[in-house]
Nucleic acid binder design. Sequence first.
DNA 1: GCTATAGTGTAACCATTGTTACCGTACACC
DNA 2: GGTGTACGGTAACAATGGTTACACTATAGC
Lengths: 210, 210
Amino acid sequence: MIQELKDNYGHLFEEALLNEINQVGTFKEVSEGQKLMDIGDYVRAMPLLVSGAIKILREDNDGDELLLYFLEKGDTCAMTLTCCIGQTKSEIRAIAEKDTKLIMVPIQKMEEWSTKYKSWRNFVFESYHNRLNEMLETIDSIAFLKMDERLLKYLNEKARVSDNNIIHNTHQEIAYELHTSRVVISRLLKKLENLGKIELHRNHIVIKDI
Amino acid sequence: MIQELKDNYGHLFEEALLNEINQVGTFKEVSEGQKLMDIGDYVRAMPLLVSGAIKILREDNDGDELLLYFLEKGDTCAMTLTCCIGQTKSEIRAIAEKDTKLIMVPIQKMEEWSTKYKSWRNFVFESYHNRLNEMLETIDSIAFLKMDERLLKYLNEKARVSDNNIIHNTHQEIAYELHTSRVVISRLLKKLENLGKIELHRNHIVIKDI
DNA sequence: GCTATAGTGTAACCATTGTTACCGTACACC
DNA sequence: GGTGTACGGTAACAATGGTTACACTATAGC
């Protein structure tokens, strides 16, 4: 595990902290589609992403979903951080977007490291910063963009995260994440195909012109 | 200033920290409608709210606005925190919702106090936590609610923040903050009046049934 | 009092998105 | 190969919200 740590967090943390993480952290692999956390769950450990990607979703009382953002390697979940401290329940759902490796750190260490390591404090603050900005991005999209623009942005983001210009999703799945209906997505995708931006196939979409 | 500090932050911070804040902080009063910070501004000090309220707004490239949330006494601006550290520009606009008193703390102290005072660290984390949750609330509203529900929520929130069931705003102003048009707001307000929930007057609205 | 202006009410119309319904096709499973 | 199911295309319609246009009224400034 120490190698993964050094590769992904070596530029952030000093040797001593890396060693501490190595001692108390547990390595975890999750496969695509697996749920890491759900709304209402209590949080007992903090994830440090080593590889892969995790999507963070919000859900309302009627069960309607909405994709908030993705976590990638080098990221951690800011929601978790605050939940740890306040002992509150999770407000979001986390699902592996693809096969993902992460290191789980027990929450008790949070406080201790915040005192001891400046790099840890900076990492935590930076994390909050990134997450807040991603939330702003999300708000911008929902508030200011029309559905076709949101869809295009979504497709590009998906392609970027999966590092692949082929998106393996059904129209229904896309509709869930953008909180709209399958028919609307099919309609807009067809329009994008006619514009030459994508190619539609059963169960996957090829991004041609990003 | 020390009295205001003790009244509003005495339960959070220890004596020593209160004294430090008192020494390096500067007292500031802003009147309703005054702009505290704009998008693109660099941030040099961190505000601790003593009384009043500040509204936080987001704007897109076309100049369309959207209300994100309110800051009230005991709050600080999490955006500021991250901007301080990263030396990045503000992503949001802050305008006094009513006459407001605050204490400005120079950003250099942030790092120092984070090492020295556990209560400061907790305050900062708590702050992030609250702001993230407020952003989630905002996302919920935009994504899952219809305009009439959003309007009702907005009116209630305004009434709560101003501690007054009379809201002194024109329909146009409300439209800006909800990112819609004046006509839509007038239409929906009239509907709410017909339902007996509010009373419409020139330049103000009375909330009857919250 | 007269006038200009800001604020509000309302109708008519349009654009976008959501809903329902139905069809054809690919694919897995038998 | 036959069948059931999931996936996607599309039409028709409804609902919501945005736009334009215009009328009326309260108020401020003269």
